[in-house]
Write a protein that binds this DNA or RNA. Structure first.
Lengths: 345, 345
DNA sequence: TTGAAAGCGCTAACAC
DNA sequence: GTGTTAGCGCTTTCAA
């Protein structure tokens, strides 16, 4: 089918370009470009005429061409270790919402927590000319740090820390949050408190949470016992098989770094006939839905996951617009909370 | 800093383009393009020389420019209703893995299950010139169908059905799966079996699951009672408040369309002092981790979520390459399973 | 307020 | 095998 508009022939099969619009509207491409981009320097009458043609022709600007010409793609890269993990997907939701609000699209790239893949994924994002990158992950490796610096592109870490504080990031105060959780346990008279988390090579565990845990023990004159620190995986199964080891060490309470992990420990203790919270207490870290689904419901630190993602994205938009970023340092700390449920006395 | 390679001055600050490479290597841009794209029509010596310069200059092709010139972006759009829902994120993981395998990137777009947003998101994906789209969602509205047709772009529905079977999709046989679940319940002597799911306007519930449910009742001469069909939300809370209503109808078993929902029902029944599975049985639909975390562990239909995503993406790659798609119709049915745990006798 | 024209960095004929 | 040369569809000076 062929259509004529203002005497110009329009071929239905190939997408109309700014040129067709300009011809049909009898203005220059520059003018069409101006109205598309909301440039005020267009006479209202002209704008109206162009808009009408755009409507009639059902013209949609080609974002790729626009990206090439303007050197901005209005898309940001998001590196995520595991999209099926609620911790990360909650962050991602916050990121996406704010991105949408600021008219950015998101290229989601799975890193599988693999250092090789992280680098590789970073490179393909750069090749796609993203305007900025949000990184979620557990550790920021040296190689990654090097690549980021070299890329000279706005970059924000969400829900994790850069222990060198070189790269902008948003997260909570993990040390203080851990302290609060462990303090609750200590206050109930527990002395054999285990810290169970993922890899201690991740700063969040090995540096911050562990530090908070130690701090509270110290302030209560409880001797730190390295054997009460359990390094395992961030998943239900790891917790599920853990009770015997915990029990053998005479543990009466656990501070867990992950909800699934905590749920596994909780269930395995109860399956062994232990009464919770009477004989065993546990607090966890992420306050995901899971904390309310298991029985008893779990006490937990609360992290504003959605907000962390949202703030990280907002921070990134500021960097991309080269707005003044008002923080003295590169880190944004969001408030954490602690919610007491039924796995603690 | 300024560097010279083969007498050409290289400005560190702006990215290297194919032109710089071609000049430094003393070949044409076309030749550089050929080696980048693995075109065999390049003399090995030349290829080597070019590769060396690419390495030295640390050149990375600009995917945006490439996209504009070739009219292919090697990115696909993925429309997802809720990234924090494991059902969808599991599909997304499968999609992403296969996409990566075929060198595609993914633009993830949240639709919030909102019809308006779905359309809007589709349009921005089209503007970004994605090579194809994978759609996850509960219903495919008429407006959406129209837009898809108009877009003339490879499009696959993952984990949901197009009841008109006009659009390519991959999913399981929901009717047969429901039948198997309900049959297990009937076989244990239950006659007051409720079907609890999300909105019945979604074909998966209102047409397929409900049909399977009815089929089994009929084949066992149990009269269908519309009051045993409960339409609610896909979330834990909806289930949590549901026991009184179920109990009032004399329900002894439930077939639930969602795991969180099922977990809520299970917990609320047990909190009311009901013994499971002795006095109440329940089967659910997605076999997420949750089924193993609650107590008792839930019996469930199993859907190969990851595979559905993966197959959908694979299907899409074939369409994008205009390969022959061998299916007689547009639907790919993957096998489902049923796993018996402890919420059924 | 508008238009002309030069790119953005790459690919894809086509020629040699 | 390799180079030349048009574009791809848009933005962005610069002039008018």
């Amino acid at each position: 089918m062929v259509e004529y508009i203002n005497g110009k022939k329009i071929d239905e099969n190939k997408p109309i370009t700014i040129r067709e619009v300009s011809e049909a509207a009898q203005v220059s491409m520059a003018t069409v470009s101006r109205v598309i981009n909301g440039n005020p320097n267009v006479k209202p009458a002209t704008r109206k005429k162009v808009l009408k043609v755009i409507e009639e022709l059902d013209y949609r600007p080609n974002a790729v061409a626009r990206g090439l010409a303007s050197k901005k793609t209005t898309t940001v890269g998001v590196i995520i270790p595991d999209i099926t993990n609620v911790y990360f997907s909650s962050l991602a939701l916050g990121i996406d919402d704010i991105a949408t609000m600021y008219k950015y699209n998101i290229i989601l790239a799975n890193s599988e927590s693999d250092e090789q893949k992280e680098i590789q994924v970073l490179n393909t994002l750069l090749a796609k000319q993203v305007d900025g990158i949000i990184f979620m992950g557990n550790t920021i490796t040296e190689e990654m740090r090097r690549q980021i610096k070299r890329a000279k592109i706005p970059f924000v870490i969400a829900g994790s820390v850069d222990s060198l504080e070189e790269i902008e990031s948003v997260h909570i105060d993990y040390v203080a949050a851990s302290e609060e959780a462990v303090r609750d346990l200590v206050n109930h008279g527990n002395e054999r408190i285990a810290f169970v988390s993922g890899s201690l090579t991740e700063p969040i565990n090995g540096e911050y949470r562990l530090q908070g845990y130690k701090n509270v023990l110290a302030e209560n004159n409880i001797e730190f016992d390295p054997e009460l620190v359990f390094e395992t995986g961030y998943n239900y199964h790891s917790g599920e098989i853990m009770w015997p080891a915990l029990s053998a060490m005479g543990v009466t309470a656990v501070y867990a770094g992950d909800d699934e992990l905590a749920a596994g420990i909780l269930n395995s203790a109860q399956d062994a006939g232990i009464k919770v919270p009477e004989d065993f207490e546990i607090v966890t870290s992420n306050n995901s839905k899971l904390t309310k689904i298991v029985r008893p419901k779990m006490s937990s630190i609360t992290e504003p996951l959605y907000d962390i993602g949202a703030v990280a994205m907002r921070y990134l938009t500021k960097m991309m617009n080269k707005e003044e970023v008002e923080t003295e340092n590169k880190t944004i700390i969001l408030p954490y909370g602690y919610i007491k449920r039924s796995t603690t006395k």
